[in-house]
Design a protein around this nucleic acid. Structure first.
Lengths: 171, 171
DNA sequence: CGGCGACCGTTACACTGTAACAGGCCGGGC
DNA sequence: GCCCGGCCTGTTACAGTGTAACGGTCGCCG
């Protein structure tokens, strides 16, 4: 649908993100621990799906993932990827970016209940996941006031990340 | 994709929503004023699209709208609806619900800059639009702290609306 | 063994969204 | 008037997103 630059992530990042292989290994380890603890099946497909998502620095569509998982003789259908993604999102290992129909690895070990804020950069396509107790609180207050019982929350901000603002000025 | 109940809105509502024809007329009037002021073209297709969205009490997909706009001999293609919706969203007359790929009428006269919080009920499918300066503030603070320059904001909460909680207890 | 459940492959299909081109309509400039 | 341009709409085509349904495999348990 849209092709962003190849950058996808900002090295020399101002805050601490695990990147590439490091983050991937962390996430896989977390998944294995979680599967162990809860008696879930962290199958090969699910693992490979998680690795593909984690290795990428930007949100990936299900069909992109399917393509990366496919070998010349061994094609992985998108529907299989969707099922793997269902598992991974259910257990907080990846997040779905609703405004992009795409998926990113979870960058926090956040306990199930919490909700994240996603900062999506228009220029480089990177996605930053942050948590703010303050936002959470004001949301809760608003919801309580409206008599609304929340089940899941989606907060996605589109704009320009710090790195890209600098890059922009440099031109 | 998903079919919710026929209810779509809660009468005896605890807060003030214009509904059905009333809301529709208001929105159309607002659109006409706006087109007048800015020299825009509020065409028949755009008007009818707005009416269809406003008359419904729940988010409508583009193809649903196309279907409602079509008469036996006069079919309206989805792509035309998308273009009308682009116009309407650009000017704040309807909102897109990213988590549903669907559209709802704007329930506020909110000045362009503000962002809304959408409360989406899982049971009846209704969508409530509210604004909270407090949420806005905490979001702004978080964004500033991250050095992120926002362009558009999406806040969508899925859960159970007040009316449906009552209905649930009654069963 | 037989059944059950979870996972995965496969097909088919519905829905979402955009690109590209063509025709109509209207206003302004000559 | 006439032409030109812009804007809107119709049409076709297509890429991407997502789910339903069926069947097969494997492991487990009675």
């Amino acid at each position: 649908m849209d092709e962003h630059g190849t950058c996808g992530h900002h090295d020399h990042a101002p805050h601490d993100h695990a990147h590439g292989p490091g983050r991937t290994a962390d996430l896989v380890a977390r998944a294995e621990r979680l599967a162990q603890d809860l008696g879930l099946q962290f199958t090969a497909l699910r693992r490979r799906t998680l690795e593909v998502v984690a290795d990428e620095g930007r949100p990936l569509g299900a069909y992109d993932i399917a393509e990366r998982l496919s070998a010349p003789g061994k094609r992985v259908a998108a529907v299989s990827v969707y099922r793997a993604l269902d598992f991974l999102t259910e257990h907080g290992l990846v997040h779905r970016i609703a405004s992009r129909n795409a998926f990113v690895p979870c960058e926090h070990g956040h306990g199930a209940g919490e909700s994240a804020v996603f900062l999506i950069c228009r220029r480089c396509g990177s996605v930053d996941e942050t948590i703010s107790a303050e936002i959470e609180r004001s949301l809760d207050r608003t919801l309580a006031q409206a008599g609304f019982k929340p089940a899941s929350r989606i907060v996605e901000i589109e704009g320009e990340c710090g790195a890209c603002q600098g890059r922009h000025e440099a031109e």
